[in-house]
Design a protein around this nucleic acid. Sequence first.
RNA 1: CGGGGCGUGGCGCAGUUUGGUAGCGCGGGUGCUUUGGGAGCACUAGGUCGCAGGUUCGAAUCCUGUCGCCCCGACCA
Length: 609
Amino acid sequence: MRVSRLMLVTLRDDPAEAEIPSHKLLLRAGYIRRVGSGIYAYLPLLWRVLQKISAIVREELNATGALETLLPQLQPAELWQRSGRWAGYTAGEGIMFHLEDRQGRELGLGPTHEEVITALAGDLLRSYRQLPVNLYQIQTKFRDEIRPRFGLMRGREFIMKDAYSFHADEACLRQTYAAMDQAYRRIFSRCGLRAVAVEADSGAIGGSASQEFMVTADAGEDLILASADGLYAANQERAVSLPGEAQPLTGGVRGDGLGEPLATPGQSSIDDLCAAHGFEPSHTVKVLALLARFEDGSQHPLLVSLRGDQQLNEVKLANAVTARLAPEHGTLLEIVPLAADAVSREGLDPLPFGFMGPHLSDALLAGARSWQPRFLRLADATATELEAFVCGANSVDAHLVGAAWGALCPLPDSLDLRAAQPGDRCVHDPAQVLQASRGIEVGHIFQLGRKYSEALEATFTNEAGQEEPLWMGCYGIGVSRLAQAAVEQHHDGNGICWPTAIAPYEVIVVIANVADEPQRELGEQLYAELEAAGVEVLLDDRSERAGVKFKDADLLGIPWRVVVGRGAAQGQVELVQRSVGERLELPASGLQSQLLPQLQRERAGLATA
RNA sequence: CGGGGCGUGGCGCAGUUUGGUAGCGCGGGUGCUUUGGGAGCACUAGGUCGCAGGUUCGAAUCCUGUCGCCCCGACCA
């Protein structure tokens, strides 16, 4: 392709709308244009990148026996009502774009395809003899993100590969899940990306095992905690670790476990309390009051106890609350801290914020206008393991010293609710310490189990002749996000440095001065020869100055640049590797033998690059 | 939704405080000179100052409303 015909529009200045390097570079180099908030046009250069990524995804999935398909984006509400997700996905905070047709039928624009695929599977898969099956598609998804950002990283319309597998039993599901794990590793490696697999929360989609694939980059939205030995890596939402040892409380249990009152005027924070009385944060139990709202409109006050030196992990809390209350009240919509004004709106007396203890009485909730009149009481194991502790006295400006579970109040459910932190010791090996890094989630695989097949009555006949729901897995890759993640991981001060395997073109032949006949001729010749050799090659034939063309080549990030310039008359050209800036003068006749083997290796991605 | 910011030629911005009829750089076009790291000179085209009301002799500028976009947070297979 000739650059003069490429509709290439590069920008000299950073666009005001972009914040992170990959977003700026994709805009500046003419890969994308914003059409609306979170809505982007993929310009011809980016489309080539996306097609290359897609091709790698296809090859690897096809190799596992998965079947490519294409499902509708316009989906009837009825399907989502059957799975029970319509309300949650379309109501106030829902992420599904939805509409009504002229007949008044409700439709949603697919944010994901579990419903459609499960309904189809239920229709088509009747016998265990047909199983397992793994179906995938590469397609545009629509999500009404509350806050789209960072270009393709979080858009409202984006390209995703999603796959859904169906099995006769759980063991078979695990096999396919493992096969997808391996396929994903190959896909990211072939794309030239450094990616790590981390344990993940299953989130709203449900299911048991779940793993995310993160492209490591500083601009990543997710925090990864991993051990240096490579044996453990998890999203912070999910990460577990060993807490530090608690310091024994001097004096131990006092007042038969009811604790002794201590005047603590104005000392409403753990720090203030400890500073004033010489306590350690690990001597204390801190108590958080929160409110959970559910799909059925019910609102449940929560009382969560943590050891004073620990932080709450809200994802773990949400999972614990869901497990206890969702069966009766539907989807958990949100958990918010209990604020003083919310308490007074309920017509209740103020809670002793800053001085709460785990024995806070349900009687305080009596007469609440809309809340459930009792606390759901949960505690992290670090708190329940304390034999004697300091906690709030449930009256302002007072704490209790030497309180004990059982005597003060019944021991609440003991769970893992704490947020693992960088520096924590690892569970699998206490000698290892968790280290933090940032990542961009580009893939996620789940063992869904039978949640959707049960809801949509997708059953098959097993060997014994009985009907049972299909076992399911689902597997996603954010294709357009991956393209931007690649830029985030591979760029420098001059522009993008595409991994060859997903670069829009592999080589750019730059004719330094198109007015110079020998240069032009040699450039055209090399361009034609490279094309004939199956190389994806650009010819910069524009009548720009050489400097402009070099800048653009760097910005675009084409992995190899062949400069046809001063040496052209003598048959000499220059070969430049974009990523490392290495230059090599060589005779034009030797270009292919120098370049082709190198390209061949790079097309395979990281593994052999 | 809460908090912050921004809407002025295609892009990046100044001008708004203190009202007087719009400017700079880049980019586009033409010509000449240049020609290996975003060239120089000259000429040139291009703007309902987001939109709608209002105040005023007069509004990019002041007031009210509204729309859009960006950032932080909440949210998020």
